[in-house]
Lab assay of single mutants.
Amino acid sequence: SLSVDNKKFWATVESSEHSFEVPIYAETLDEALELAEWQYVPAGFEVTRVRPCVAP
């Protein structure tokens, strides 16, 4: 099958004044980091952490 098993990760994104967490959907932690950097670094943010979303 061609289905992709995307998992939810939380990326911590920082600017000079703010820090916030955004959801990233990817297959692996490395891919989540790449996606977060691709989305947020060009906008002037720094991705400081990516972690798996742990269900309660």
Rank of each mutant, 00 (worst) to 15 (best):
S19P: 02
S1H: 13
Y25N: 03
V13F: 04
A43T: 05
D30L: 13
Q39C: 15
K7A: 08
E37M: 12
A26R: 02
K8T: 07
P56T: 10
E37C: 08
F20G: 01
P56D: 12
V47M: 00
E21I: 09
V13N: 01
A55M: 12
H18S: 09
C53G: 07
A36I: 05
L35S: 04
E46R: 11
A32W: 02
F20K: 04
Y25C: 06
V54Y: 11
T48F: 00
V22C: 07
D30G: 10
E27V: 11
V41E: 07
E31G: 06
L33I: 13
H18R: 11
V22A: 04
E14H: 09
Y25K: 03
W38L: 15
E27D: 10
Q39L: 15
F9Q: 00
V47F: 00
V41S: 11
T12H: 05
V22L: 04
V4R: 13
Q39M: 15
A32R: 00
K7W: 08
V22Y: 04
F9C: 15
E37W: 12
T28M: 02
L2D: 09
R49Q: 13
A11G: 02
S15H: 08
E14T: 14
V47T: 02
H18L: 14
E34L: 14
A32Q: 00
T12P: 00
V50E: 01
L29R: 05
L33Q: 09
W38A: 15
S1F: 10
Y40N: 04
S19D: 02
E27Y: 11
V50L: 06
S1K: 12
S15D: 10
D30A: 13
F20C: 07
L29N: 03
L2G: 13
R51N: 04
R49W: 06
L33R: 15
R49T: 09
P42A: 12
E21W: 06
S1A: 12
T12K: 06
E34A: 15
E21D: 09
F20D: 01
D30N: 10
L2S: 12
F9S: 00
K8Y: 13
R49V: 08
Y25R: 03
V4A: 11
L29M: 09
K7V: 07
I24L: 04
N6V: 15
S16K: 12
E37T: 09
Q39W: 14
W10E: 01
C53L: 04
E14R: 13
W38N: 15
F45R: 04
F9M: 01
T48G: 03
V47E: 02
T48I: 12
V4H: 14
E17T: 14
P42M: 07
E17P: 04
L29D: 03
R51L: 07
W38I: 14
P56G: 11
Y40C: 04
A26K: 02
K8E: 06
A43W: 14
A11P: 01
L2P: 10
A36E: 02
S1V: 09
S15P: 01
S3F: 08
D5F: 10
W10L: 08
G44D: 04
A55V: 11
E46D: 07
F9R: 00
T28I: 02
E17Q: 09
Y25V: 04
V54S: 10
P23R: 05
S1L: 09
E27P: 14
E21K: 05
G44N: 02
W10D: 00
T12D: 02
S15K: 10
S3Y: 08
K8V: 13
S3Q: 11
A43M: 15
W38S: 15
E34H: 14
F45G: 03
L2A: 13
H18T: 13
E14K: 14
V54N: 11
P23H: 08
S16Y: 08
A32Y: 01
S15N: 14
E31N: 06
K7P: 09
L33G: 03
F20M: 07
S1N: 11
P23A: 14
V50H: 01
A11R: 00
T48M: 04
P42D: 11
A26F: 02
A11M: 04
V4S: 10
D5N: 15
T28S: 12
I24T: 00
R51I: 11
W38Q: 15
A36C: 07
Y40M: 03
T48W: 00
A26V: 01
S3V: 12
E46T: 09
V50Q: 01
V50F: 03
K8L: 15
E46I: 13
I24E: 00
L35H: 05
G44V: 00
W38V: 14
L33F: 13
A55N: 11
W10I: 13
K7Y: 07
V54Q: 10
K7S: 05
E27G: 12
V54H: 11
C53A: 14
E31R: 13
F9A: 00
A32C: 05
V13A: 01
A55F: 11
Y40I: 04
V41G: 15
P52H: 08
T12G: 02
W38C: 09
P52N: 05
A36Q: 02
F20S: 02
V13Y: 04
L33E: 05
P42S: 10
A26T: 02
T48A: 04
H18K: 10
G44S: 00
V22F: 05
A11Q: 01
Q39A: 10
F20Y: 08
L29S: 05
E14D: 04
Y40G: 04
T48E: 03
E37L: 12
N6I: 15
A43I: 10
W10V: 07
D30C: 13
D30P: 05
G44C: 03
V22G: 02
L33N: 04
A26S: 03
V13C: 05
L29H: 05
I24S: 00
R49I: 09
E31A: 12
H18N: 08
D30T: 10
H18G: 14
S19L: 06
P42F: 07
S16M: 09
K8P: 05
P42N: 09
L29W: 10
P56H: 11
K7G: 05
E34P: 01
V41I: 10
L35W: 06
T28F: 03
V41W: 11
W10H: 03
